[in-house]
Structures are given as structure tokens and as C-alpha cells.
Design a binder for these strands. Structure first.
Lengths: 88, 88
DNA sequence: TAGATATTTAGATGATAATCTAAATACATG
DNA sequence: CATGTATTTAGATTATCATCTAAATATCTA
């Protein structure tokens, strides 16, 4: 993993709201509106957080009509585990 | 783990310099000056980073004469692993 | 105890980041 | 195609953060 992408990744999970989003997605793929039922921020802010998670490749998106469906990318979370284990 | 301390912890490891400090300490306890040989910031900035790591309990300190010796607290890194695994 | 060494604290600055409202875009459907 | 729904983008604001220099504190030693 490159230095830069590592930073992107750790920054992405540094925010409580974003970790909560990941936790919400743990139970399965969800539309933005569905995620927003669990996260108390404006739609714009949620979209912003999702874009950061997407940039870190922690989530994937696909369209379904008007909706966008987000899914957790488990393999990147596993990458984080590997990085932290390296510090042990 | 409480919500608040979790945030403190994830914020602490979100910074590249701080992760580098942890990596430096992985090889054994070190004085501030010894750490500073590996981290390219001013002494004041390093001290600031160390205080954040200390607050997150990721490092421990003891005095030895004029020096302060920092050591890695492995168990807290293991806590992070547990938290991330919960998202999987 | 005076001066040297090690580290922290204070205070300032510039850069990022989280958040909001309002507007824009994209798609669906009557 | 006009309207409604879902989401993103733009632009602004406020708060937080990484960093620096200078000053303070603590310890050691001649």
C-alpha cells in the first residue's frame, strides 16, 4: 500500500460519522436515504462523507434508478487490519 | 470502549507522522531526541504529537534523568484491531 | 549554584475538514 | 415533456489541527 492511500484510508475512518456509516452498511447494501435514517446529518453532509469513503475505496456504489446503492468493501477494512498489525 | 475514547484513538492514528512515531517505537523504547532522529518535525511539534498519542494511551512515558522515555502500548493497538474487526 | 541539555508549553498562523443551505443534476413516471 | 424524487455539487462558515518560534520548566554536572 502506498503512503498516500494509507493516509486517505486512515483519515476516512478517523471520523465518527463515517465509522457509523460503515457500521450501518455492515448489515447489507443501502441507498443513501436508508443510510440517512441512521445518521443524523443533512443529505449534503452524508453525500460528502460517502464520497470520502468511496475515495478510500471503503465503499462501492452502483445505480438503481434514482437511487444509489452503497456497499461495504470488506477487503479494504482488512487492509487496515494488516497495516495496524504491522505496528505490533 | 466508550464512544469518546474511540474517537480519540482513531484521531490519534489518523496522522502519518504519529503512525510513524508508533512504528519507530515498535523497535523498542526511545527518548524524544531519539524519536526525533526519525521524524522530520520541530521538537515542539514532536512533543505535541507525543502528547496526543499519550492521551490516546498508545504510548507510555517515564522519566530518566533529563530524558523522557516513550514506549509503545501494544494493548491499545490491539483494541483498534478489535474495533475494526467489529465492522467486518 | 550557573550553565548546559532535554523536553514541554504558549501563542500564532495557515491549512483542512465538517457542516449547512441552496442550487444543480439525474432519473422515473404520469 | 413536466413534475417529483434521490443524490450530488457549490459556496460559505466555523472549528480543528499541524506546524513553527520563542519562552518556560526540569534535570544534570562542573
Amino acid at each position: 500500500m502506498q503512503e498516500d492511500s494509507q493516509q486517505t484510508l486512515f483519515q476516512a475512518i478517523a471520523d465518527t460519522q463515517r465509522r457509523k456509516i460503515l457500521d450501518v452498511l455492515k448489515s447489507g447494501e443501502k441507498s443513501v436515504a436508508e443510510i440517512n435514517e441512521h445518521i443524523d446529518v443533512s443529505g449534503a453532509t452524508l453525500s460528502h462523507h460517502l464520497s470520502i469513503l468511496k475515495q478510500a475505496d471503503l465503499v462501492r456504489v452502483r445505480r438503481a434508478g434514482q437511487k444509489r446503492i452503497y456497499t461495504l468493501n470488506v477487503s479494504v477494512l482488512e487492509q487496515i487490519l494488516i497495516q495496524i498489525k504491522k505496528l505490533l
